[in-house]
């Protein structure tokens, strides 16, 4: 990081001298009212509580101007069903769970079944940030991966690099004009959490299956969840170090 920063500064200085513009000024935190060095966020999904109502998916789409078509999701809910006599689970996510989940198998035929909410894992080692050719996606100091919709060129390398399918290309008929043709993804509602609010999906969840917290705040209830439960992350073998922690999922969930 330091070497890259140095390189950048050298480049910047070079171009600055070439054009005679003054060197860039640097500030400690993005705004006066929020110091991002004092926060480090984390997300816990308690799969044992999720009822698959899809209110989170809806809240997310309304909060973040996500197109309503069933191909674009910042968060979605998957249903896992192990049928009796079958080893591999049946998985589905009709419209991302936006309209809930119709019953498709009789209870008697089912060995085990539950819902798994999915969202961006805000990886500590995000492959999407690594592959962005222009620096349009980045990890903030408080641990959230964001996309710069005014800088993204829409090459979609990040979409390919994400092992979790958390990114999509904002369509050209999407409601937010300035975001069209750029990569979009869950930001843990960065515009909310930096104001002290919870992400919209957490707000909307009626059963507390989604918990959001600040690891740098010792009184946050997230510590209790992380300490008292056996937790796992999705696709740990990818080496991405996800920051969304799951309670009560099998290894078949990926």
């Amino acid at each position: 990081m330091i070497t890259r920063r140095k390189f950048l500064k050298a480049l910047g200085l070079l171009s600055a001298t070439a054009a005679g513009v003054s060197a860039k000024t640097s500030r400690a935190e993005p705004t006066e009212y929020y110091d991002w060095s004092k926060h480090y966020y984390s997300f816990v999904v308690d799969s044992t509580k999720c009822i698959g109502c899809g209110r989170c998916v809806r809240a997310c789409k309304l909060e973040n101007e996500v197109p309503l078509e069933p191909f674009f999701f910042r968060t979605w809910v998957e249903r896992y069903i192990w049928l009796k006599g079958e080893e591999e689970p049946y998985v589905d996510s009709p419209n991302g769970g936006f309209e809930g989940f119709p019953v498709i198998y009789d209870e008697k035929a089912i060995r085990k079944s539950y819902f798994v909410p999915k969202l961006c894992n805000q990886c500590d080692r995000p492959p999407c940030v690594q592959v962005c050719p222009v620096g349009a996606t980045y990890k903030t100091e408080d641990g959230v991966v964001l996309v710069d919709e005014k800088y993204c060129i829409g090459c979609r390398y990040c979409i390919q690099a994400c092992p979790y399918g958390a990114r999509y290309l904002y369509p050209f008929n999407g409601p937010r004009k300035s975001r069209r043709g750029t990569a979009d993804k869950c930001t843990w509602c960065y515009h909310r959490i930096t104001k002290g609010l919870k992400p919209a999906c957490v707000e909307a969840c009626p059963v507390g299956a989604r918990k959001f917290g600040d690891l740098k705040d010792p009184n946050d209830e997230i510590h209790k969840l992380l300490d008292e439960n056996r937790i796992s992350v999705l696709k740990p073998e990818q080496g991405t170090k996800p920051k969304v922690f799951y309670i009560g999922i099998d290894t078949e969930v990926r």
């Binding site: 990081m1 890259r4 920063r5 950048l8 500030r27 993005p30 705004t31 929020y34 809240a59 309304l62 909060e63 620096g135 349009a136 996606t137 980045y138 903030t140 964001l146 710069d148 919709e149 005014k150 800088y151 930001t187 509602c189 960065y190 515009h191 909310r192 930096t194 104001k195 609010l197 919209a200 707000e203 909307a204």
Partner: peptide, 18 residues
């Protein structure tokens, strides 16, 4: 770092809905 600093502020300033 290797990104537009203003982008963070722009995203922070998006209006909440809920």
């Amino acid at each position: 770092d290797w990104y537009r600093g203003d982008s963070v502020r722009e995203i922070m300033e998006l209006p909440p809905q809920h």
